[in-house]
Design a protein around this nucleic acid. Structure first.
Lengths: 161, 161
DNA sequence: CATAACATTGACGTAAACGGTAACCTTGTG
DNA sequence: CACAAGGTTACCGTTTACGTCAATGTTATG
């Protein structure tokens, strides 16, 4: 059943390491619908993907990582797509800074760029930590209730009046 | 400036401890709009409030607490109103169990009820912990980046080539 | 007790985040 | 190479979570 898997990722002259995937494959892998994938591209969450000669979208591994990141931000953290857009923008900006950084020779300028990047990161960190405090608080409350119940159970067994 | 605050919460024969508030007061206190307050009641997030003779809503302290709880779940934790509805339902159910619990004399039955309540709580706990893992992961990544930058800054100062 | 300030219920409007369908084009497979 | 399977844009529909009148009734205050 798993024999004869000879050529599979060699559809073109793709001898190197960069894979590419159809929209259906990406949908299956990420758990997003094809409609959603197109939508995210439309609203600029995902940079325009590569296209085949026949105008078919081709997704890279980086695209998939970005999509998984988006999904985490959306589902786990409850950010709106607008929030996510901003967050990804600061991350992209970080990448830009990183590239500018390499071409910069003045140490002082380099440090200034690092400061600028850190500022963006700290804003995100603050948002995240705020959310964590809220979650932590809820968790503590719930756990306390469970432990309280545990204690009551003990009492009931020791003194079944 | 803070003198002569004689009668203020004595609009009716309200000699005891239960306060009541107008929709505008509640809106101011909770940061929700009046429209939102009515909407939350409409969709069953908030149980129908008391009304005055002229059909004006009157909110209790408990109502305010519930609204603040809803707001935390919504803003900090990014739950949808549907999610929140479920969460509050399990909490309400816990209260119901608690009351039934008091009228129950069989220890075995009491323990069964505790088990049932715990089941609901654990489901919530799981949801919350899932979100926390996601946040934790993001936070770690961001902090690592900042520390990395810190190290680069050090290198730049020691070796300003 | 007049009247300004506040409340009530519709009813319609809207932004976000997709779902679904139509009309048409591309690609892999026997 | 026929053709089923899958892709594209375009466009309209839907749900969620409210915003915004409008018409009307209520409450507080001088």
């Amino acid at each position: 059943m798993a024999m004869m898997a000879t050529n599979e990722y060699l559809s073109s002259e793709n001898t190197d390491e960069t894979r590419s995937y159809s929209i259906e494959q990406v949908a299956a892998q990420t758990g997003l619908t094809k409609r959603t994938l197109r939508y995210y591209e439309e609203v600029g969450l995902l940079p325009p993907t590569d296209r085949t000669g026949g105008n078919y979208r081709r997704y890279s591994d980086d695209d998939i990582h970005r999509l998984e990141h988006i999904k985490r931000l959306r589902d786990l953290l409850g950010f709106s797509l607008a929030d996510i857009h901003d967050i990804l923008e600061t991350e992209d900006e970080r990448d830009v800074l990183k590239k500018a950084y390499k071409h910069e020779t003045e140490a002082a300028a380099k440090i200034a760029q690092l400061d600028q990047a850190d500022e963006l990161i700290r804003r995100q960190l603050h948002l995240i930590e705020q959310k964590m405090v809220g979650l932590e608080q809820m968790r503590t409350t719930l756990k306390a209730t469970i432990e309280h119940h545990e204690q009551i159970r003990g009492d009931l067994l020791n003194n079944p009046s």
